[in-house]
Design a protein around this nucleic acid. Structure first.
Lengths: 231, 231
DNA sequence: CGCCGGATTGATCAGTTTCAAGGCATGTGG
DNA sequence: CCACATGCCTTGAAACTGATCAATCCGGCG
């Protein structure tokens, strides 16, 4: 099966419910099956919007392939990315009728989705579904709490160290990390400019804490040193 | 009924389940009554710890009188306050077995509490309780998402403007705002130093946007100007 | 009255941003 | 196959915002 040709203008329905899945996938599968709704696959091109802040939240999503950023904007375009969503992650579960952040594909991305409405219905009769919905929102809250500490109180180098450890944990399968996002995305996630991110990474490279094979292919050489500087 | 004498060393059990309650109180009352547990009152002295980060989460709390800060610390003492909890607010509802932030009374504070265990049990059989727990966690998440935008991307003056509007909304009954927290707390909430907070407030005072009756008694004179600068 | 914690204000410092230039890879068209 | 355009990243220098250090100030209270 060769990769889909994706147009940036529109997403396309796919078949094949099975997928390369990861830890929290369980929950999604559980709630999806309990909800009785068929989980559909859908693909988005690089930088394509999946949903916008303020739009009615019709679906809940799980990343199958690719990566997603969710963010908020200020009037003048300043952007804060709240989270990166990698394969296996669930996103778009905003209780309340509207999405509170915008979601965009970072690279060509395939997601599985179920109707939010059917989840709510299932939660009304099945306490396991209700419990899973709560647990997933709670996981998002935990991440947000940790990230507030980072944004409000960590220095640039500490922020980048924390970011690298997070990504290492979440996507390093082989010791090699293949970052899907650009420096600007990292900056907007960490509350920094892209230049400051680049300088911090260069500094860590100079110190031998990490090695680049390319700008986005990074090998961590000393996780302990990173953990120390992440405060 | 005169105010309790409170020792900082220890909290004291009170009686009287009724209380001066506010909007989200409904939810707490509902889950509390459904859980079958009696909501007990308890008081804490100024700066007394209610629970610590990492401690097993035994209770869920609702502020009756006073105010509470919940925060995280870095190794070296840098602090990020995640939220202020005012009368009517529920806090301490950390799904998972342990609290992820520390909670302290800002001033002498009375809370109502119910055993977390009994809520979980109730949620297992009553979907309304389960739904309320989810909704409350979701409200915390929404606040955290907004606050990440503030911490990562707003300037000092924008942060203070946002803070004033939030507090105005939450505790201004008479047009007068009586802030329960000191400048350092505000700084640790906004990711600023206390000096920067003080300077921003002085600047807003000079501009006629607000007036002090005392350092913590503030009247907003021009909410529109604040809303404009809050970006 | 004088102490004390909290708040304000001033002066200087430092970290991060901003502005700017150049490099390196990738892809496209001649 | 090469030339060039493009996007992304790195690096340098200057500017600026907010932090730090330090000196009062103010109000409440013993």
């Amino acid at each position: 099966m060769q990769p889909q040709t994706i147009t940036t203008a529109s997403a396309q329905v796919l078949s094949a419910p099975r997928a390369p899945v990861s830890p929290s996938a369980d929950q999604f599968s559980i709630i999806a099956s309990c909800s009785g709704a068929i989980a559909t696959e859908f693909s988005y091109g690089k930088d394509e919007e999946i949903y916008g802040e303020g739009e009615p939240s019709e679906y809940v999503y799980q990343v199958i392939r690719g990566a997603v950023r969710t963010y908020k904007l200020l009037n003048d375009g300043r952007r804060q990315i709240g989270a990166f969503h990698l394969p296996g992650d669930v996103f778009g579960l905003d209780p309340g009728s509207a999405h509170r952040l915008t979601a965009e594909a970072i690279s060509d991305t395939t997601v599985r989705l179920v109707k939010r409405r059917s989840l709510e219905t299932a939660a009304g009769s099945d306490v396991r579904v209700a419990h899973n919905l709560w647990t997933m929102t709670a996981a998002d809250l935990r991440h947000a709490e940790d990230h507030m500490l980072l944004l409000g109180r960590k220095t640039a180098i500490e922020k980048v160290a924390t970011f690298l450890l997070e990504m290492d944990r979440r996507l390093a399968k082989t010791g090699m990390m293949a970052l899907p996002m650009c420096r600007r995305d990292i900056g907007d996630y960490l509350g920094l400019t892209l230049e400051t991110v680049s300088r911090a990474l260069s500094q860590l490279n100079d110190q031998g804490v990490l090695v680049f094979s390319s700008a986005r292919q990074i090998v961590l050489r000393n996780r302990q040193r990173l953990a120390d500087m992440d405060a």
